[in-house]
Write a protein that binds this DNA or RNA. Structure first.
Lengths: 277, 277
DNA sequence: CAAATAGTGTCTCTAAGACAATATCAC
DNA sequence: GTGATATTGTCTTAGAGACACTATTTG
């Protein structure tokens, strides 16, 4: 009879072929656009970080930032590390989106991707600055259904415009996945990963545990509302938004002045959640 | 300048060490218990499939069914294959729960686990029969918070009783993970995987895309309600449950008779979902 | 004052919860 | 009839949506 120690001493994992494992991250940011008018509030845009591939395969195509899982780290640590390498910013949050393991999804061989959504605050990006000549750039995102279970994903950065088309696929538990009809020039199956990530982000933006991460510590309620509206592509009346968010925020005594209209009170996120008996 | 084809010809993935990848599945079933009384409806129990490990490590411990990802299959196919091998039943549904990749989670080496929840209907298990001497058995599940962010997971099958203790850990996006305080004799980190799986299942059971998979094609509304109550551990008044589920089901003309009380109409799941303009 | 946003009060409507009442069967 | 579940109807209540109104600032 063999003991567990003896067994492990003689154990070899290498009999089977193993896949390479990567983490790919859809890092989102919300950025205010230029004001149309001195007293008007700025519009927001949802931005997604893409990286221009320097080598084969898909050379010169844009792709999600990501990289191979290294020994000694978890897949979440890998995802955070990759984002840090590209942006110099540590994301506020990370959420798994799915595992993409179609055997032929990568022409280099057997590589499975763990996809994540990550939220980065505009403030933190502005602090470290952004290299305009870098291979990593923030693309503005639009993602809408174009009828008949078909979706159109558009990504734009300066004069680069990527436009992918995806088909909706129902899976169990009422969830949906996406099949690529036209990759729009995105590398690998990243168009499908982005679609999945956006769907997950929109679902999460409904509840108030997610949207704070786009903003700095202190924010106005209107700014918070615009974040939610930008992500979900729906609008709420300000009065109703304020009522809904009221239990998640705390007043400060400070205001934002000098905007050409009534100053807005700054709020912070309420740390202690109600409902615990 | 190298073309992509030339590049791929000379490309080798084997420079980096790669992890082994497994799929582990928390397969749930709901089974009616013996009636207390000839005219009373049976109580339900939530059951989880566990497998007794035949070899090291964790020899003779109980573990989730699972196995290594094989070349040419997706991780979902791997999960379904493993369940099929243990139960002879193809699950009705499969939902990702998370990726467990702590470097030291498996004493055999670098092995990361993709966890899934799967629902198996009691009917399908009854049809193929169940080998009582098999190494795979259905354990009844209870999972409750024992105050102070601590959870107790109890699994029972005949005279086997596994009792794990877990601590809640908040992650971003308002999600929770679990850290094992006491594995209760379960193999690897499977206590944490089961806790995560149960949390995901309970969350999903709220909406009516999930619970039908526990039942046969035709079912009574009371049976459907009991399924939801068994999973979520809360009760609803029958009148209100019927109203809530009414748009998801369709009447048949058949009834269940001979139960010592008023016959219950059989329903089927409504296939065409409302709300599409 | 004009233009714009900030913020409050309140009516309505809908969906969930509570509860009462009736229907139907096996024994 | 008795004991049990099946099924329907309706009152109440909490929360989201709509809308009207007031408050406050800069140019």
């Amino acid at each position: 009879m063999q003991s567990e120690k003896e067994f492990l001493k003689g154990y070899k994992l290498s009999d089977y072929e193993r896949p390479s494992v990567t983490a790919d991250v859809a890092a989102f940011m919300i950025s205010p656009q230029d004001k149309e008018n001195y007293r008007r509030n700025p519009e927001n845009k949802l931005l997604l970080l893409l990286v221009k591939r320097g080598g084969h395969p898909f050379k010169d195509c844009w792709a999600l930032p990501g990289g191979f899982l290294q020994k000694g780290e978890t897949i979440e640590q890998c995802a955070l590390r990759e984002i840090k390498e590209e942006t110099n910013v540590l994301p506020a949050s990370l959420m798994p989106v799915g595992v993409f393991s179609e055997p032929d999804r990568d022409p280099r061989g057997w590589i499975i991707s763990n996809a994540y959504v990550s939220i980065i605050s505009e403030e933190s990006v502005r602090q470290v600055g952004m290299d305009d000549a870098s291979d990593a750039q923030w693309f503005s995102v639009s993602f809408d259904r174009s009828g008949n279970g078909s979706y159109r994903l558009s990504l734009e950065y300066e004069d680069v415009r990527l436009c992918a088309v995806l088909a909706e696929e129902k899976t169990s538990f009422g969830k949906t996945a996406f099949r690529i009809s036209d990759s729009g020039g995105l590398a690998f199956d990243h168009a499908a990963i982005i679609a999945q990530a956006l769907t997950a982000l929109r679902n999460e933006a409904k509840n108030f545990d997610t949207i704070f991460d786009f903003l700095p510590e202190r924010f106005t309620l209107t700014a918070l509302q615009k974040v939610q509206e930008t992500i979900m592509n729906v609008s709420v009346l300000p009065a109703n938004f304020r009522r809904m968010v009221s239990s998640y925020v705390e007043e400060t005594d400070d205001y934002v002045r000098g905007e050409g209209h009534r100053p807005a009170r700054l709020y912070t996120r309420k740390t202690i959640k109600e409902g615990s008996t």
